[in-house]
């Protein structure tokens, strides 16, 4: 029983990290209509900045550098590239982001090389125990931070002028623009927020039990795509829910792999994508998404 509980808690805490990334996908998508394939490399970029700056300025300042750096890159990509597309539409924007992803990921891979950079997180390999269940301290912290971040996002979108403006812009850009909402500002805010979420997720993805900052982190961020799709393309709460579901399903598949041997080794890696394909087939708008988003 405690094995099962451990797996569930592991899954949920990992799921919250995925939710952070998935929410970034959803925010960029609603604020500018872009499928941000470069999000995974931004996650890696945030973690990389923390790893290279923490020896000189300390961990917490380094996290700040990572968060700001990732946000700035997001805003720049939007302002310099996405808004200047010769032919702006979701398809070309998605391919453009693939190009940005290739550039960022190649450059980061070149800088990191074969090394695994230590993140320097002060919680190290600590483990939190309660009632026979052990969880990595990083995961517990990740869950706490995610909850705080999501509360902040809720406040932003529900209670502030900026957030309500962003929702209006997402619902109907031209009309929102006529009502005096500056789409360039809501778009930039969306990209900055996504960068912040990506960097935070990067920190938790690369601290214990993960060995450190290495290029495959960008690929594991891909796991957030099924979470995003599952929740619905334009819904931040959906992204959170999707992350939890995917985290849970993955953890349980990995945890009980010996019983699921029929499905082949390493099934835990593909189960999120399987879930995603089934969801797209049965309910293309996702769990909490609005239907319009899918019709385009």
């Amino acid at each position: 029983m405690s094995y099962f509980l451990t797996q569930v808690l592991n899954g949920l805490s990992f799921g919250l990290v995925l939710s952070l990334i998935a929410a970034g996908f959803a925010i960029v998508f609603t604020s500018t209509g872009v499928l941000n394939f470069a999000h995974g490399s931004v996650v890696l970029l945030g973690a990389y900045l923390v790893a290279v700056t923490h020896p000189t300025i300390g961990f917490w300042a380094a996290v700040l550098v990572g968060v700001v750096g990732a946000a700035v890159v997001g805003v720049l990509v939007n302002a310099l590239l996405v808004r200047n597309l010769a032919d702006p539409n979701p398809g070309t924007a998605a391919i453009l982001m693939l190009g940005v992803d290739i550039l960022l990921l190649t450059e980061l891979t070149r800088r990191i090389g074969n090394r695994v950079l230590p993140l320097g997180a002060p919680w190290g390999a600590d483990v939190v125990r309660f009632g026979g269940i052990a969880l990595p301290a990083g995961r517990v912290l990740a869950a706490g931070v995610a909850v705080v971040v999501f509360a902040g996002l809720w406040f932003l979108f529900a209670r502030t002028r900026l957030g309500i403006g962003m929702r209006a812009a997402a619902a109907d850009g031209p009309t929102a623009s006529l009502m005096g909402i500056r789409l360039s500002r809501t778009g930039a805010t969306g990209w900055a927020l996504a960068g912040v979420l990506a960097a935070l997720a990067g920190v938790f993805l690369t601290s214990f039990p993960s060995p450190g900052v290495a290029p495959p982190v960008a690929l594991s961020a891909f796991l957030a795509i099924p979470a995003w799709v599952l929740g619905g393309f334009d819904s931040v709460p959906g992204a959170v829910l999707g992350g939890l579901v995917i985290g849970l399903v993955t953890a349980l598949t990995v945890g009980y792999e010996s019983e699921l041997h029929v499905l082949g080794g390493g099934f835990g890696e593909v189960v999120p994508y399987l879930v995603m394909i089934v969801v797209l087939l049965v309910r293309p708008q996702g769990l909490l998404g609005s239907k319009e988003a899918v019709r385009v």
């Binding site: 998605a94 795509i225 393309f233 082949g264 099934f267 890696e269 593909v270 797209l280 293309p284």
Partner: peptide, 27 residues
Amino acid sequence: VASRLRGIYLGLATLGLVFLVRHLLLN
């Protein structure tokens, strides 16, 4: 799946296909 989804949504679904096929090849 392909005929129900349009544009980038199909792109996402096919992304999953790559991982699924790789899993099958390995197993």
